[in-house]
Design a protein around this nucleic acid. Sequence first.
RNA 1: GGAGGGAUACCGAAGUGGCCAAACGGGAAGGACUCAAGAUCCUUUGGCUUAGUGCCUUCAGGGGUUCGAAUCCUCUUCCCUCCACCA
Length: 916
Amino acid sequence: MPDFKSIQDKWQKAWSDAGIFKVKEDKHKKKFYCLEMFPYPSGSFLHMGHVRNYSIGDVIARYKRLKGFNVLYPMGFDSFGLPAENAAKKEKIHPREYTENAIAKIVEYMKQLGLSYDWDRIIASHRPEYYKWNQYFFVKFFEKGLAYRKKASVNFCESCNTVLANEEVDNGKCWRCESIVVNKELDQWFLKTTAYTEELLNDIKKLEWSDKIKSIQENWIGKSHGLMISFKLDDGTDFPIFTTRPDTIYGVTFMVIALNHPRLIGMLHDPYKKNVQDFIKEVEEAELKDDMDFLEKSGVFTGRYVINPLNNEKVPLYAGNFVLSDYATGAIMAVPAHDQRDFEFAKKYNIPIKIVIQNKDHTLKLKDMEKAFIDNGTLVNSVSFNGLNNNEAIEKISEYVEMKALGKKTVQFKLKDWLISRQRYWGTPIPIVYCDKCGIVPLHVEELPLLLPDDVDFSKPGNPILTSNSFINTKCPKCNGEAKRETDTMGGFMDSSWYFLRYCSPKTSDVAFDRETVDYWMPVDQYVGGIEHAVGHLIYSRFFTKALRDMKMLDFDEPFNALFNQGIVYKDGAKMSKSHGNIVTQDDIANKYGIDTARLFMLFVASPDKEMEWNDKGIEGSFRFINKVYKLYDDEFNSMSNNKDKYLVSRKNIFIRDFNKTIDDFKLNTAVVMLMDFVSYLYDVRENCSKKVYHEALNNLAIMLNPFTPHLSEEIYHMLGNNKNRTNLPSKDQDSNNAIFGIKNFELKSEISKTEIFNTDFCSLEKWPEYNEELIDDKLHFMENVFDNTRKDIISILELAKIEKPSEVKLIIADKWKYDLYNEIKNMNSKNVSEITRHLMNTELKKHGQEIMKIVPKIIEKMPEYIIEDEYGFFSENIAELEKIFKCKITLIKEEDCKEAKTKQSMPGKPAIIVS
RNA sequence: GGAGGGAUACCGAAGUGGCCAAACGGGAAGGACUCAAGAUCCUUUGGCUUAGUGCCUUCAGGGGUUCGAAUCCUCUUCCCUCCACCA
């Protein structure tokens, strides 16, 4: 068995020494930017989930490279974040050290995976040369009014001790620690994503993303058309609300305001004030205990009334727990008859219900109602709008309200501004200074980076930056007076919103990215990553791109043209991850079978977009395959004949053609199947191929294996003699360990100049084989199939008849009926399958029943005459071969010459057989 | 409550109207090689049968469209993922 360990070590070293995956901008080559979401460097190993993810990206990168694209395929680390800080607290190690250690280890593992990254472009967001630019962009955004500070009710995780963005709250819980998130009023920094809401929504259409992820984004942005109407509070002050259902406005019987609405407490008088305050306390306590999703809708009367501007009705105002303070105006009009939530609320508190939309039969009655009527219908109880269909009424009432200047048609979005402040240490310091005289002052860009302070005490609770006096106390950049620094840092999504730009020119120190190289590489052609980033990272990056475009720093609208979401790897019912403790590491598998097997298996076992349950049962198969491939190249090759040349050539061209399509469609698992098929075909035919044809096929195969099993590919490619310094094919006895071969070769080669190696000597830089449609002959394969089946049938008949040495085998070409069928169809002059089939069922041919139905459409569509015409000729050609195999006389008989023969066959063209 | 994805033989997983009793891999059984084991190779692997041709039953379950359905439509059951008091 070959020593795969040394094979992979050898080639990894060779690739690295020769620097073959380094890329430069090259205007003469078409570029391809293949990018995987940069990971958070947690832990110190990779598990099979990672192997799967990165292998998928690497297949694409290598495939495109072999196809002649200039491929940018970089890797880096999203290295700011809470885990490093927590580790620092626990293990008494600085987060920087912790992070750098983790990165070093993970890079090691990635290299062992054989990933074809350009390691010269590695970036890590915690390094000042990177986060300097976060600060730069922040200052620019601030200048443009895209970054602002405001007091807001924000999500706060008590356990992580920081605020969270909307995207980081899951079902009312913190995404990291799963503790309940509470609301707090805090001064925070925001980026104005809402300045781009419309564009973010509209441009989704342009993207080659899955419909699923597109719809997640659309829902998140959440556009709804409606009407903003000014109700009046009973003291005459404005009380605007937003509704998408103006048609129900005459059915309003109460109003509800959010509990944390800024106006609420101020408008109340005792005893209602106290009631409301008690109620708020109650709800807060309940929220801390229970899951948000099961809290019943409840509320309390505020003692105030609101006047409906359309009919001047006075309705009670409630404070309710189901109204969101930060959507629209934080208050709603309630129409219990036609909204389920309002209905439940009204029932609970005995509020009147008023029907304003009737069903088709006008049978809707209040006393029968068990739930709200939310279907379409006809307006009633709505003065001059009565009788209108409710959809028309939406339009009509909106127009009326606008005409009367009581309100305005509006569009509301769910998307909110992006909260970037975090009260944590391990993030980019926000480059802002608070000066008593000048107020909020950004740092000058020349002063950047503003470094994270080192004199901090991680042992104390709260934000560690607060313990650094050297950091906090500073001078105002404007007036040079005493000032305090902002101590919040930026959330990690800031880092990941532009890292793809940094890869283009990772080392520039005077700009965040070099405009020219960005223009060359961007946008990303294929982005690969998990679906969990559908709303966070993938919206922020789009926002960033658009904002930078408007600041004339970029020239395109969208960062990621195509996006592929790979499936998650599960084990024991949970996502494979360190925190679940259900991991199988890369090492576990690589040590046993080699890394190519690990990669191949993860690609083979399931379609890349589907989730999979880890199971190492089948891995032996991938390992066997790899050994089988190796053996194919290692075996002494003896050509017996060239009979199979044309078959192999045709078959190979089909393989190349279909393989391309399969990879383009991301069906990497079926691509592996095709490789397996082709390999076993090679085993079948190789003895009957000429050396030239066979070697060409082996050479093509080595290249096509490269994306999947790069080390094996490289090895066999060189065993074939694709190396200027090697003249002989390897022979078995020369070295027991074939790996040594390659090492010798490589040592030889390393005397050559690097540039020479660069474009000639690595399979990884080869040219992907082309296929030629003209060399594909379907008929050949049909016949091959028939021949093969016939051969097998003869064998099994001989076995069953216990004949060891037959004296004669008669093959009866027995499908005269197919000629009849063919003629019959020709005569009908129709292309309608149903018609033809019905007709045939009334003829003699009926007895061939099912088989007719199978063949008819083929005859109509493609007319593959060979199915029904040529087998006699074909078998004449192949008699000699069969005779050689069976060492007896083989005779062909036509059906009409053999009256006693049975005429049914298992497949078209396959002859019936008589043995004697 | 909303959106999406699934259910295929012992297992994983292909397969989107007829060359489908269903690719490929695992497992299992038999055989070859071997003193033996392992590795490797070959065959079989829904049922009943036949020397071969054959017949019956299958792709979660019911109903439908069609000459023909794993594949299309419809309902039901079960599983998964994502979003969710968005007015």
